[in-house]
């Protein structure tokens, strides 16, 4: 058949292209929403951040950040809160995830509700609950004084302590869910084999189980860290104006000075830090796995 023109080639190609586009056209409405709400406003902020007082291109908004001590303090606070919260979540989340992963799936599903219920409850409600629990005349103080843990009620809220407690509580599910997922995938036979080869349970855990659970833990920790970087509500309420993170400062700039350039520049820095951390995270896990608890 050499030399003969391929049959129906052009028509098939046309049809192929038409079908591909008609399927892809289904994502267009969703893309329009994202472009309108995310891309255009973000680009606008990006543009504003490079606008000087005279309306021309300028780096002064970024330059300011390196100049003023207040900015430095805000960055330090943000990282401090984010890192401490992440560490607290690892300390509390690892044993909990390990416990859940050791249970038969049916029981794990029931106990998992303890993780999912807070996860699903408005963070405003939970922040409020901590505000009530931690106040001077609150339950925690009264309980502590009663059992003699400390003598007079101490200030647990409207400061760093309260912020950290509230944020650790709110972030804990974000660490437990991916970590639990990773632990469930660890082959029980491996631990069995390690035990049969004479490893003590502790030894088997550290040499076999822990390294295998590490990617899940790192993924969860990075998620928590990223969410902390951009956190607003909890530090605003539980920090009582004493814990100012990047998000809080962005709002303050807009409320007090109405300086869109400065606020945008700070936002761009936050976005870059977030994206970079997530880029690191993406090397460890699939992004949608984070949400598995909600699927």
């Amino acid at each position: 058949m050499a030399g003969a023109a391929p049959l129906h080639e052009a028509a098939l190609q046309r049809q192929h292209r038409r079908e591909q586009w008609s399927i892809l056209s289904l994502v267009v409405p969703a893309m329009i929403v994202i472009i309108l709400i995310i891309l255009i406003p973000l680009s606008w902020l990006f543009y504003l951040s490079f606008l000087g007082d005279d309306g021309g291109f300028s780096l002064e908004n970024y330059h300011k950040m390196t100049q003023y001590k207040s900015y430095y303090r805000i960055f330090v606070t943000t990282f401090q809160v984010s890192i401490l919260t992440t560490l607290a979540c690892i300390a509390l989340g690892y044993p909990l995830a390990f416990f859940l992963a050791q249970l038969p799936p049916k029981w794990a599903g029931i106990f998992m509700l303890a993780v999912l219920l807070p996860f699903w409850t408005s963070l405003l409600v939970r922040t409020y609950a901590w505000l009530v629990l931690l106040q001077k005349r609150g339950i925690l103080n009264e309980f502590a004084v009663q059992i003699g843990l400390w003598e007079t009620p101490i200030k647990l809220v409207h400061n760093m302590t309260g912020t950290l407690i509230g944020m650790a509580h709110i972030m804990l599910p974000f660490l437990v869910l991916p970590l639990y997922n990773a632990m469930r995938k660890i082959d029980g036979d491996l631990m069995h084999a390690a035990a049969n080869l004479g490893a003590s349970p502790v030894h088997a855990f550290w040499r076999v189980y822990f390294p295998l659970s590490l990617p899940g833990m790192v993924a969860g920790a990075l998620i928590v860290f990223v969410l902390c970087l951009g956190f607003y509500v909890t530090p605003a309420v539980l920090g009582g104006g004493r814990v100012i993170m990047v998000s809080n400062h962005i709002t303050a700039i807009l409320e007090n000075q109405f300086d869109w350039g400065a606020a945008s520049a700070l936002g761009v820095v936050l976005l870059v830090a977030t994206t970079f951390t997530l880029y690191l995270a993406a090397r460890f896990f699939r992004f949608d796995a984070v949400l598995f608890g909600r699927d």
Partner: peptide, 17 residues
Amino acid sequence: NRPDSGSIQFGGEEVIL
């Protein structure tokens, strides 16, 4: 599965498209 080219006929009727 859409082929790149060719012909498929059912009883003489072209169906490839």
